[in-house]
Design a binder for these strands. Sequence first.
DNA 1: TATTGTTATACTCTATAACTATA
DNA 2: TATAGTTATAGAGTATAACAATA
Lengths: 156, 156
Amino acid sequence: MPDPRNKRRAAGEPVSLGMLPGLVGYQVRLAQMAIFTDFDRALGALELSPGLFGLLVIVEANPGLKQSRLAGAARLDRSSLVPALNKLEARGLVTRRDAPGDRRAYGLHLTAAGVALLARAKRAVRRHEARLAAGLGEGKRDLLIALLSGIFRDRR
Amino acid sequence: MPDPRNKRRAAGEPVSLGMLPGLVGYQVRLAQMAIFTDFDRALGALELSPGLFGLLVIVEANPGLKQSRLAGAARLDRSSLVPALNKLEARGLVTRRDAPGDRRAYGLHLTAAGVALLARAKRAVRRHEARLAAGLGEGKRDLLIALLSGIFRDRR
DNA sequence: TATTGTTATACTCTATAACTATA
DNA sequence: TATAGTTATAGAGTATAACAATA
């Protein structure tokens, strides 16, 4: 069993964070950490990270998509996509099928198991997002999304 | 020189992102990536990541701070703080001085060089944040910060 | 007994550069 | 020549568990 001395926390007077809490970048980072933690709580049992979930969603929405195009949509280098896709394929959620008319490429598809798992994951994500929205207050969710998508443009 | 074949991009019809753009978590992640990229552009010459910058800010605001307390404030495990602090100390920006009255602990301080570099970094961060705010529109910066800090509480 | 800092170690995620097979 | 996928490799960044020194 682990040594219980590793989990202790030092308390005491508060530590000043200086200018950090006033920075958008800092608050976005904290929000991301908190969201990631709750996402994990919501989907941990399905063994899906936000990244893998996103890949499944995109493949479902674009049957037969080629890897390069998926990498672009997910903002990954195509080499970074390979291990993620290997994982999903090894779990029987995604298949690399031959792309018609191009023997270099694969067309990606969800398997039946992939469709089923994704359906469960989507429901969990919606619950997670609802919790998140509840903390924000009525109607502020769309506002937050609008503000975020206005940061440094070029995003969707 | 690198093989120029690695930088090419596939274009074509747009790839659908399904439900992703409507998720707060997705938009936060994109915003974070965009912010990180611009932060790097703004502070890259100073060789400071958002994480290292944050550590310097906190140490400056709390002279003599102990490592455990800094780790807590930066939301890092104390073991994760060690390599970051080693880096800052090796660059002559931070010193581990003896903590008065506790021979186990160090008190952290910025060096003169650390103070000077941080001053430059703060100006760069303010410019970076101003660019960010400009994209949002007048007055929306505070609103965004308020919304973000309302996500899953417990943050400051 | 508990805390402070450190180490050894490992894991996730991502990228760069180069390779292969096709086009 | 250019593109699709893969590999080898490396680098951040972080955590867990254990340890010595000290409280």
